[in-house]
Amino acid sequence: MIYTVTFNPSLDYIVSVPDFTLGLTNRTSHEMILPGGKGINVSMVLKNLGVDNTALGFIAGFTGEKVRQELEKLGIKNAFIQLDDGFTRINVKLASTEGTEINGIGPTISKSHQEKLLQQLDTLKKGDALILAGSIPQSLDDDIYSNILERLKEKDITIVVDATKELLVKVLKYHPFLVKPNVFELGEIFDTEIKTKAEIAHYAKELQKLGARNVLVSMAGDGALLLEETGAILTAKAPEGTLVNSVGSGDSMVAGFLSGWFKKKDLRHAFSMGVAAGSASAFSQYLATEEEILAMNEIVKGKVEEGYENSRLN
């Protein structure tokens, strides 16, 4: 079984606002309210690809209950822990204004509730997979991910981490199967601005030296780079298309990669599926369907190359 953990889930209010202008009343042309959070996005795309999984994490208040209800409508298993106080955050995503979001803070998670999650994770067994994805509420220490992996280190579990800064760096000593920073996040870890693919490869290798087994770096319109455990490098240019909504494209990449990996246990196929899923979601109104992802993979798999050209990023 694949398990996703989302410490800070949300209700995402996704709106299109043509000609958005600061200081004026803006009206939407299209809007959706959907469950969100990186781990939940991974769960939804995995489900779209026919991969059974269970969503874990914390919910609170009426917004948290809405998240649960929406996932159940989609047929996604969940075992969320209900918090006593506060409410699951609401995130506003301006789909028509690239990268513009207003994200809520999230509720306080007590030590006793954290322990309940750890007890859930204690039940994972050999062959299971665990995806730790996204930010954490301010009430948690930035070693929560590493605490989880310390607890699970004797289990034969496939671990994937999609997080930033110290959340990611602190887990590397536990040798996660896959980490997936984007270019900005990779540069942030090493306090540098990455401008070329050679620099991406260099800093991906630095993450590998710290313990990561496979490093998948998303490069937005430039595609993606995979540094394999063997040291081999794969790259793929992004397919051509019109960006409709960048929300969840990185999470879709993680889901596509895992779907491909568990189907064939082949990193090239997993990489192609990851890039296809990320691109398909970016070109869709919301998270891509299986049909969209498989169609995109027919394009992407022909773009996968070994090594990389030392070119500048767009």
Rank of each mutant, 00 (worst) to 15 (best):
M1Q: 15
T4Q: 01
T4C: 02
V5S: 12
S10Y: 00
S10Q: 06
V15W: 08
T21V: 05
T21H: 05
H30K: 14
M32H: 13
L34T: 01
P35N: 07
K38C: 00
K38T: 00
G39A: 12
N41Y: 13
V42P: 07
S43Q: 07
V45Q: 06
G50W: 03
V51C: 09
D52G: 14
N53T: 08
T54V: 15
I59M: 10
E70K: 07
E72Y: 13
K73F: 03
G75D: 04
F80A: 05
I81H: 14
Q82D: 09
Q82N: 06
T88Q: 09
R89T: 00
L94N: 11
S96Q: 14
E101K: 09
I105V: 09
I109H: 12
S110D: 08
S110V: 08
H113N: 13
H113R: 10
E115F: 05
L117G: 03
L118Y: 15
Q120W: 02
D122V: 05
D122M: 04
D122Q: 15
T123M: 06
L124H: 07
L130T: 04
G134K: 00
L140A: 06
D142Y: 06
L149T: 01
R151F: 13
R151P: 04
I157N: 12
T158K: 15
V161S: 02
K170F: 03
V171L: 07
K173I: 12
K173H: 02
F177Y: 13
F177C: 12
L178Y: 08
P181Y: 00
N182G: 12
F184D: 12
E185D: 15
E188N: 13
T196C: 09
K205V: 10
Q208K: 10
A212I: 12
L216I: 07
M219V: 11
L225V: 09
T230F: 08
T230R: 02
A238H: 01
E240A: 09
E240L: 14
N245L: 08
N245F: 00
G248A: 01
S249V: 00
S252F: 02
G256W: 01
L258D: 10
S259R: 02
W261P: 07
W261R: 03
F262A: 10
A270Y: 14
S272P: 12
G274A: 05
A276Y: 07
A276H: 02
A280V: 09
Y286D: 12
A288S: 06
E290D: 14
E291Y: 03
E292T: 06
I293V: 11
V300D: 04
K303M: 07
E309P: 05
S311L: 05
N314W: 11
N314H: 08
